[in-house]
Design a protein around this nucleic acid. Sequence first.
RNA 1: GCCUCUGUGGCGGAAUUGGAAUACGCGCAACGCUUAGAACGUUGUCCCCAAAAGGGUUACAGGUUCGAGUCCUGUCAGAGGCACCA
Length: 819
Amino acid sequence: MRYDHSKIEKKWQKKWRADSLYEPAIRAGGPDFAHAKKPYYNLMMFPYPSAEGLHVGNMYAFVGSDVFGRMKRMQGYDVFEPIGLDGFGIHAENHALKIGANPMVQAKVSEKRFYAQLDAIGNGFAREESLETYDPAYYKWTQWLFMKMFERGLAYRKEAEVNWCTGCLTVLSDEQVEGGKCERCGNIVEKKRLEQWFMRITDYAERLLANIDELDWSEKVKIAQRNWIGKSEGVNIKSRVKDLGIAFEAFDSVPQTFAAQTFTVIAPEHPLVHDLVRGTEHEAAVMAFVGKMKKARAAREYDAVKAEPEGIFTGRYAEDPFGTGDLPIWVASYAVADYGTGIVHCSAHDERDFAFAKKYGIPLRAVMVPKDSEEAEKVRSLKYAYCRDPHGVMEAPAELAGMEWGAAREAAIAYLENKGYAYRMTTYRLRDWLISRQRYWGPPIPMIKCEKCGWQAVPEADLPVVLPRVKEFRPTGTGKSPLASVKSFYETSCPKCGGKARRETDVSDTFLDSSWYFMRYLDPHDEKRIFDAGVVEKWLPVDMYIGGAEHSVLHLLYARFVTMVLKDMGYIGFEEPFTVFRAHGLLIKEGAKMSKSKGNVVNPDEYVARFGADTLRTYLMFLAPFSQGGDFRDEAVLGVYRFLNRVWEMAHDAKSEARNPKSETDPEKAEKALNIAIKKVTEDIGSLKYNTAISALMICLRSFEEGGVSKGQFMSFLKLLAPFAPHMAEEIWHALGEKSSIHRASWPEFDEKIIREDSFDLVVQVNGKTRGTVRAERGVDQADVEALVRGDALLAKWIGEKEPKRVIFIPDRLINFII
RNA sequence: GCCUCUGUGGCGGAAUUGGAAUACGCGCAACGCUUAGAACGUUGUCCCCAAAAGGGUUACAGGUUCGAGUCCUGUCAGAGGCACCA
């Protein structure tokens, strides 16, 4: 009899939901987070729903997380596995625009479709706790969070050069720009000066960096975060512009070579540039150059990496800081305005500086040379830029002479500090988080600007600031949100003085929505508070977080930041939200990335309809290691389909007690196969190696087919299968007479004694080449093994008559004769 | 340019972490069952010469070791992260 998945899967999905089977710690029919005995927070990144529906890549990630959660649940944990929709944001809005729908209306359509699809994949979602970021009940607290950040001085307003996406017509955070293009729509990103809201994430740079060491995350993601934060230690050199008396500082991360500094560069965007040249003969030319550079950078015509450095002399000098002569100040294209101080003293020991000086004929001086005297002469005569060699020998200043570059660092800093030329400085590449978006589909930033009192936060009692349903939601491209033309929205009164005031009409970045959702899941319906601190303390940090590696720096960094802020505010006692994070791999289709334009996007619905969710789930987990991702191949689905059908066939045998279809019943063989499978599946699910866990199940089933199986053994096997094929396992479980769900049954244990064989094949090598095996008892000693080998004519001939030079014996594994 | 990974049959991928390379699955072939096909079942399937015994093989070239897919050095190829960041 064939397995009819369509009826069976629907039946159990309904029953599980009706029984609240996947709600953690159910009491009196409902979830009870406060009284859970063994809380286990099994979280996956929530998806942003598109009307095209669930992508098989989404399903891959969710099922991978679910398999893990299901085992944990059967191991006795109160597993909480919530699901929600990250529906606010540019992505969802762009899609709505494309199909000509209002995002607010479209969200409801997508929501319905998405949840229906999510419910069909058979995950153990705690659906009572689902949330959507565009629900006012949710974004009320996103706004509350913003308001609290403002009160604490962590949200602030400043005019800044921002990334302006010419496609989405909004500003983007640095993180959302990839190679000068918008990561969402691919259009050119320009630079624009606008006044915007920022989050002071740079205040947390050191903590965000330091904590990384303690996290149980994949190394790749940790490295990505470290790179992003980009800590650089060095000194700020105190300097002064000659004749003008203007003081400035220059950051230097390699202070060893300070004595080589012969010129100074300043970024074209630096506010000081005009002051340097105002009223001088250089003003016109320099300002023209600055204008040209700004324009080129704004239009992204300027490729920062490839372009040859350009510059112009300002006619000014930095006063000689170290008695080495005044340094001409140049405006240079390669200087970055918002890193360090935007002004740098340059030397021959930096490739960019060297190339720039050569191009414009600026004098250089080498103070460090290689050990090799011939090479040293080349460096002294400035043939090439000699940089960052730890074994380079210092020649100047006298205080450092003779020291190796690597060792000279501290000495150089001490020298500079003692002389009062500089002080220690740590610089980060991380910039503050730009929150404002000039779009419609997001949570309005809860701020009010009063003509008299200035910026005021919307009081908690007035939250949420509800996003109005409007006709004109298209981005305007003017630097203002569509809400800026909705009078009924922006006209308001000042919360402080009651006078005339205007609401902020920008909305916040969608990454603010997703920076705290995992806390809200624990009671998304609470109207009075953002969360119950006791419950959050009990359940968080998240025990296992699974998601895409593409969120390595964006989402994960923001979530960590917000969690730290909440801790500092005293709302929670922990500062890292995710104890363990594992990134899943990318699913591709027949060797190519899935994309709509290629037409190779797999729609899970088709496969669920044809083979059932269990088959698709098991196949997705089988095709490759979960952390690696893999290749989805239509033909290969059949292999898993056959396997599950064989399980189904065996169920009919098992029902009428142990039957052995093909040979004499061998209960020991089945028991051993089962124990091996329990061990392998338990370990492999624990380390997310689902592909080999399924392989172990296949081997175990084969063994049952050959040697027969008892009902009890088969039921243990079903438990191992349950995380992968939850519907079929449940169906057979009940058919075998069980009344309660298999998904709350206890996970089987294995017995090492049964797995271990008494006799085994010991490998025999001669000169390291394998020549055969001998059957031996476990624990056999070397002399007995040698006797066995000599007794075997085929093996003995390899060794010959002579005594071997050496014999290597690895107990219970191998013997190697060296002759 | 810098920093991380990854290279194993026709294909997806295994390999108690230094101990019999290719588990499991796909595909393919033969056979069985079928009027036929599908489905299902059985057997075989890394390459070379071969009946067998042997020999070769984990991108390539070296090295360490009794023994290397696994460790080290270099080269090539692919993926990802950062990038005029001083």
